[in-house]
Design a protein around this nucleic acid. Sequence first.
DNA 1: GAATTTCTGATGTACGTAAATCAGAAATTG
DNA 2: CAATTTCTGATTTACGTACATCAGAAATTC
Lengths: 352, 352
Amino acid sequence: MRPTVHDIAAAAGVSLATVDRVLNLRPGVRAATREKVEQAIEQIGFVRDVAAANLAKSRVYPFIFILPSGDNSFMRGLETEIRAAIDRSVFERTQISIVTVPAFDGPALANALDQARLSHPAGVAVVAVDSPEVAAAVNRLRTDNIPVVTLVSDLAGSARDHFAGIDNAAAGRTAAGLMGRFLRGRPGPIAILAGSMLVRDHRERLEGFRSLIETEFPGRMILPVLEGHDDPVEAERLVGQALKSHPDIAGIYSLGAGNRGLIAALKAHQSGASVIAHELTPHTRKALKDGLIDAVLNQDAGHEVRSAIRVLKAKADGQAVLSAQERIRIDIFLKDNLPFDDAAPASEGDDI
Amino acid sequence: MRPTVHDIAAAAGVSLATVDRVLNLRPGVRAATREKVEQAIEQIGFVRDVAAANLAKSRVYPFIFILPSGDNSFMRGLETEIRAAIDRSVFERTQISIVTVPAFDGPALANALDQARLSHPAGVAVVAVDSPEVAAAVNRLRTDNIPVVTLVSDLAGSARDHFAGIDNAAAGRTAAGLMGRFLRGRPGPIAILAGSMLVRDHRERLEGFRSLIETEFPGRMILPVLEGHDDPVEAERLVGQALKSHPDIAGIYSLGAGNRGLIAALKAHQSGASVIAHELTPHTRKALKDGLIDAVLNQDAGHEVRSAIRVLKAKADGQAVLSAQERIRIDIFLKDNLPFDDAAPASEGDDI
DNA sequence: GAATTTCTGATGTACGTAAATCAGAAATTG
DNA sequence: CAATTTCTGATTTACGTACATCAGAAATTC
C-alpha cells in the first residue's frame, strides 16, 4: 500500500498536525522536528495523493488564454480548441477565460498580460509576440508566482515556464529537407512567404529552412522573403508579383498564415512550383487535394491547448511535467494522408 | 458550484442511500423511484467526480500488457515505455504487468490472452496478431467485461474496445506519396520489405502504399514483396538478392522491422535508392544521418502506451474517451529534423 | 524560577463519493 | 388483515489530504 500522512506521522514519531505543517510549509515547526519529518517522508517514499489533496482543497484553476484576434484560420481553430477545453472544465477543475488582442502588437499584448495579472489567475497561456515589453510583462507575472506557458510562438529572454508548441527550427528544416528532395533535378529558385519577423515561430522556421537549404542543397537560390503579415490580400499580391517577375520559381515555402492569398495567386498564375505550407485549415486542405500544395506541416491546436493546460496545472501544483508527453509533434500531411474529410477542421485531434 | 450527490437526493426527494443505489446500479430501488432519481440527475446536470469516487473506492487498475518477445528494437522500446508507466503506477493507481509471447504466433498469443483473463484484470493491452483464434480470445475477455485495447497492430473481427496505434493505411500512403515525389524523374522499380502478412499493420501499410503508387504514380513498377519476418539476417539476404538481380531499383520501402539487415545490405551494395523505413531506432537513426535512409515514419511508443492506459482506465470506468486526444500521429523524420541526438532512443516522447 | 513565547499534539470538520448497517415504511403475499 | 417480502431512509465510516482550533508541553526570555 502507498504510504499516507499517517505513516509519516508514525515513522517520524510526531503528530498528524506537525506532518501537515511540514508538508504545506506552514510555520510553527522547530527546525530539528521539520528535519525529522522530512527524513521520514524520504525514507518511506511518501508522495502526496494529488487527487485527494485537490478534493480537500476544492481546488479550481483559473487560467487565462491570450491569443491574437483577427480571421487567421489557425488562431480561430485554436480558440475553438480552448472553448472545447472550457466545456470540459467542470471535470478538470479549470476555469478558463479567453482574451484576444490584435496580432503582432507587442504593447497591446503586454497590456493584456498586465491586466491578466490583476485577476490573480493560477496560470496564463499566451501566443507570444517576441518583444522586450512582452517579456517584461511575462516576468512580472512570474514574479507573482503565476505560471506562464507560451503557446504556438515562444518568447525570448523571459522566464516563461514552458513552451507549448512545435520546434519551429526543426519545422523549417523539415520543410527544407522535403523541398530539396521534391525539387531534385529541377532548377529554379525558392520563394518564401512569411507573416512577420516579429513573431518568433516565423523567424525560427525561416532560419531553419534557409540554413538547411544552404548546407544541404547548395546552389539552390532563395529569393528575398515576402512578408505578408498573415494577410491573404497582401500575400496574394506579393506572391503574384514574385511569380510574375520570376517565372522559373521551382518551390514556394509558406511559413506563416494568409495561405488563402497564396493559393489564389497559385491558381491565377498556373504555377507548377512545389509548394509547402503550414497549418491544415479548410483552405490548405482543399489546396492539397487540388494539387496546388504538395505538403502541409501542421501543429495540432487541440494538442497544444491540452498540453498547455496540463503544464499550467502541474506548475501551479509545483509538480514535474512529463516532458516526453508534452512534446508537440509536427504533422506532415500530403494529399494522401489527410485525416477524415468531413469534420470541422478544428476537431481534428492530437496527442496526448 | 458543481452539483453533488446530496443535491440529487434533495432534488429527487429521496435519501443519499437511494441515490447511491441508483448511481452504482445496486438493487433495492423501485422502478418508479429509480426513474425519479435519474430525472433529477439529468435535470441538475450531475456528473460524478471521478477523483472523489476513486478515492472512496481506493480504486486500482490491474492492467496486463502483452507484446512480442525477441530483439525487435521497436518492441523493446515499447517495453521500456511500459516499464516507465509502471514507475508512475503509484501516482496513476495502475498495476501493470508485462507478458511476452513469440512474435507472429497466433495460438501462443491466444493462450496468453486466456491466461490473462484468469487474473481478472481491469484491462488488457495487446500487440495483436491478426488471426481468428486471437480474435476469439479477445472476445472471451470482452464477454467477461474486461476492456481490451489493441496496441500497434490491430485485430479484425474482434470486439476490442480501441486501437492504440497509427492509421497504417495512411502511413503506407504517406510513404508512397513521399516516395513518388522523391523519385520524380528517376526511373526504376520499387522494392518492398515487409515483416509478415500475419500482422495487420504490415498488411495495411503495404496495401496503402501499393494502391497509392498505382493510382498516383502509374508506370512505377513495384517488385514482389520481400517477407523478412522482422529478422535482420533474413532481411539482409532478401534485400541483397533483390539489389543484385535488379540493380536499377530506385526506391525501397521497408514497412516492418529488421532494418539492421536492410541497412547492411544497402551499405554492401552501395545502392543509391531512395529508402523509406518505419520506426526510429538507434539503427534507423544512424542510417538517416549517414544518408542511407531518406525518411523514417515513426509511431511514438510512449504515446501509444500512455494512450492505451488512458483508454483502458476510461473504459474500465465506463467513461467516454476524447478520441481526438487519442489519435496517434505518424511522425516523419528526415535526417534534419531528428529529435535530440544523445538520449536513449526509448525516451523520445510523444503526445499527448 | 516565573512569565512569556514558541512549538507540538489532539481533535474535529471538510472535500465528494462509496459502502455498509439497521430500522422503519411500503408493497406484496396468503 | 396479518405476515412477509421488498424498498427506502437515516446514519456512520471510510478514502487521503487540508485546515482550523485549542490545550498543553517545551523552549526561551527576563
